[in-house]
Write a protein that binds this DNA or RNA. Structure first.
Lengths: 257, 257
DNA sequence: TGCAATCCTTGACACAGGACAAAGCTATGA
DNA sequence: TCATAGCTTTGTCCTGTGTCAAGGATTGCA
């Protein structure tokens, strides 16, 4: 299983990265620290602390204090809300460079779970807040990222409230393609992606059941819109803009732009 | 119709409020400016500009530039996303003191529509951004409010993704009660609210159809959980914590706290 | 006072997606 | 090589919510 091999190599990297310079960081240009000057980076670097979580591990629990904030460096984090009877909704899916944690509040309102093996670059929450106040570029970037996440969450509201199962799945595939940084790709070109989530988590994210997700994936495959060769996780989008059309995009919907 | 009478009196107030001092502002303690010192308030006051919108008016359009940001002073604003075939989802509902607009970006990603007659206290977007950078309390409050809205949006994701129609409606009623500032009320006490949205917009907000919303409202009425005397907009919550239970709250769910 | 417009409610039926059940795949490990 | 465990797929049936249609209720205006 690829998860295990990732885990091993990741664990190895962890030791290295504890000393990794921010200048070499893969997410340096997009993370919360990306607007900081060299000096400001040095200050952050002095207090940063890498944390590693294995696939499936709980990073934070709803209602509990979370003493750190930080950036996802590797892997993916699912933010989930649960109801007392067990119904579960993934309310956020964090990719590398995304910010995790809740500044200005002690507790977090949802669970955070490592989907993959995850590497986090963290800061003590209180110290980070202190730094926020005297590091304008840091605060501005955090504000910008939070506003972007709010826009993304609202887009997802449209998905959950109005799109059909078929549209939801197509939408998810296109979103993953975009997030995996397949920059400007010719819309009709075949795009290979590896899903960060299994069927169960896809269902959790899309407000569906696992069976419905599976059925929609097979339907798309039978129609020749996607292809799956090495198991259910590796998907190649055969016709990206048809998928985007099915997803029911409007406005800009630039193909993988 | 109450809308019309409100409209008239509101239009009258508008003239007055153009000169209204920030010190007398009803939302001064919760709005984006609430952390500002007297001096900082004076700076804001110098550039603030009231804008009024009649019920149903479009405040902003998705994808279009929005040259101002600001606070909702009176009334309610619905943020909506539309699909090309007309399906519509309300992705945000703004109450007095909520922030409206998109700092750090020229365009807005959704439509904003006045549900009520609305009074906005606005600032030129670029000037506001300029001020943000040199007014830490302003930026901190905006960050705090944005983080809170993100949490709220994620709660709504759970609602849209996993709750039943009945739970959605109960949830909405309890939320409105909370937002109408019926502070700490004995949970079993009757609470009278006036819905900011008609059945159609409730459906738009909850990802349902108008018929389903109507049916659920009647169901709750027949069960004696709510009461409606003066038309469909004025609702009294007969048993608030049973409603909150139906809503499927978890965690803190403090009754109207 | 009555008409028109708008909003809300109710009814009958259809269908998308959920629930339950079982079987197929893939990877790890003995 | 086989066994075990965890995913994923597929099948069948069922139910909650949408769709279509019609009938109240309220308000403003002629």
């Amino acid at each position: 299983m690829s998860a295990t091999s990732q885990k091993t190599s990741a664990k190895h990297k962890a030791t290295d990265q504890r000393r990794l310079a921010c200048g070499d960081c893969a997410i340096r240009d997009r993370a919360v620290c990306s607007l900081c000057s060299t000096e400001e980076m040095a200050t952050l670097e002095a207090i940063k602390h890498y944390r590693r979580f294995e696939a499936g591990a709980t990073i934070a629990m709803a209602g509990e204090p979370l003493p750190f904030v930080g950036s996802v460096v590797e892997g993916h984090v699912a933010l989930t809300r649960m109801m007392s009877d067990g119904r579960r909704q993934i309310v956020g899916l964090l990719f590398p460079s995304d910010f995790i944690g809740r500044p200005l509040r002690e507790t977090i309102a949802y669970d955070a779970e490592a989907v993959d093996d995850v590497l986090l670059c963290t800061f003590d929450r209180v110290r980070f807040e202190w730094l926020l106040r005297r590091t304008p570029p840091l605060e501005e970037r955090l504000l910008e990222m939070t506003l972007d996440e709010l826009d993304a969450a609202r887009e997802t509201l449209l998905t959950l409230g109005r799109r059909t199962a078929r549209e939801k799945v197509a939408n998810f595939l296109v979103m993953v393609a975009r997030r995996q940084g397949i920059g400007a790709v010719a819309p009709t070109e075949r795009v290979e992606i590896v899903l960060p989530l299994g069927r169960d988590d896809m269902a959790g994210f899309l407000g569906l059941t696992i069976e419905t997700v599976s059925r929609q994936m097979t339907a798309l495959r039978r129609e020749g819109l996607i292809d799956m060769v090495n198991g259910a996780r590796e998907v190649t989008l055969v016709n990206t803009d048809t998928l985007a059309e099915i997803a029911g995009e409007d406005g800009d919907g630039g193909p993988l732009a």
